[in-house]
C-alpha cells in the first residue's frame, strides 16, 4: 500500500473480496450455564458504521469480542473479511491483524512510550522496519492530535489522550474494521468529546466501524444502523432516525426512554 494514502482509516485500497466485512450466523455463547449470546444473526458491510446499544449485561461487549476471538463462541459461524473464524490459532491471528479494537479502559502498554505503543505491533507483527513504523505512527498520532506527546508514557496522559493514542495504535495496523468497546465510558465528561471527534472523523473517511456505546448523539450523527440488544438477543435493528423516533419493540422504547428521558 502506498504511504500517500494518509487518511485516518488507511483502508483506501484494501483487498476487497466480499462486500461483507463481518458475518454472524446463529451464534450462541454461554458463560458456564449462563446463555450470553442467543441466536445472533447479523452482518456488517464494508464501510458501514454500526452502533450497538442496550442495557448492561445484554451481551454487547461479548458480541464484538467474539469477532476477534477474545471470547470464544460455542455455536454458529463467524466470518470476518471472508475468513471463517475457527479454533486455528494462525487463522485467529490473521483475523486479529485485520480487526482493530479500542477498549473501555484503553489498555495501552504502560512500559512503552506513546510512540512505542503505536510501533510495537507494526514492527513485530507486520515486520516493518523501525523507521517506517515510527513515521507511520507519527502520522496517525498527528491525526488524533497527540503527536506532541509521543515521547511520554501512557501514565502521564489524561484518559481522553490515552484513548486517542489507543485509536492511533489500532489504526497503525491498517485494520479493515474497527471495534469500539464502550470507548468513552471510562472518561470524564470533558474528555468524551475529543475522543468522539476522532471517531466521527474516522467514520467520515469510510472506516467500517462497530461501536458499543451509550453516546446516542454519536449514533445519530454517524451510524448507518443502530442495533439494540437485551438479554443476549438482538431485539431491534434500524437506521438511526426511525430507531430513535419510532422504536418498534417495547423493550427498545423502555430503554430509550430511560437513557434519553431526562
Amino acid at each position: 500500500m502506498t504511504q500517500a494514502a494518509t487518511n485516518l482509516s488507511g483502508t483506501s485500497m484494501s483487498k476487497s473480496t466480499s462486500d461483507l466485512m463481518v458475518e454472524m450466523r446463529g451464534v450462541n455463547k454461554w458463560y458456564g450455564d449462563f446463555h450470553v449470546l442467543r441466536d445472533i444473526d447479523f452482518e456488517v458491510k464494508r464501510g458501514e458504521r454500526i452502533v450497538i446499544c442496550g442495557p448492561s449485561g445484554s451481551g454487547k461487549s461479548t458480541l464484538i469480542r467474539c469477532i476477534n476471538h477474545l471470547e470464544e463462541h460455542q455455536q454458529g459461524d463467524i466470518v470476518v473479511g471472508g475468513v471463517p473464524l475457527t479454533q486455528d490459532v494462525k487463522r485467529i491471528e490473521q483475523i486479529r491483524r485485520s480487526v482493530g479494537m479500542v477498549f473501555q479502559h484503553f489498555n495501552l502498554f504502560p512500559h512503552l512510550t506513546v510512540l512505542e505503543n503505536c510501533c510495537i505491533a507494526p514492527m513485530w507483527v507486520q515486520k516493518k522496519p523501525r523507521r517506517e513504523a515510527e513515521e507511520q505512527a507519527m502520522r496517525y498520532l498527528e491525526r488524533v492530535r497527540i503527536a506532541e506527546q509521543a515521547k511520554k508514557y501512557p501514565g502521564q496522559l489524561s484518559g481522553g489522550q490515552q484513548q486517542r493514542v489507543a485509536i492511533a495504535r489500532s489504526l497503525c495496523m491498517h485494520p479493515d474494521v474497527m471495534l469500539f468497546d464502550e470507548p468513552t465510558s471510562a472518561l470524564d465528561p470533558e474528555m468524551i468529546k475529543e475522543v468522539l471527534d476522532v471517531m466521527v472523523e474516522l467514520a467520515e473517511e469510510g472506516m467500517t466501524m462497530l461501536c458499543v456505546t451509550h453516546e446516542m448523539g454519536f449514533a445519530k450523527t454517524v451510524a448507518d444502523r443502530v442495533i439494540f440488544m437485551d438479554q443476549g438477543q438482538i431485539i431491534e435493528e434500524n437506521a438511526p432516525e426511525p430507531f430513535f423516533n419510532n422504536p418498534q419493540s417495547e423493550r427498545t422504547q423502555l430503554f430509550l426512554s430511560q437513557i434519553l428521558g431526562h
Partner: peptide, 17 residues
C-alpha cells in the same frame, strides 16, 4: 491486568510475542 494481554492479542500478536 488481563486487558494488557487482550490488547496485545487484538493487535495480532502470537502468544510468545
Amino acid at each position: 491486568p488481563k486487558g494488557q494481554e487482550e490488547a496485545a492479542a487484538a493487535l495480532g500478536m502470537t502468544y510468545w510475542k
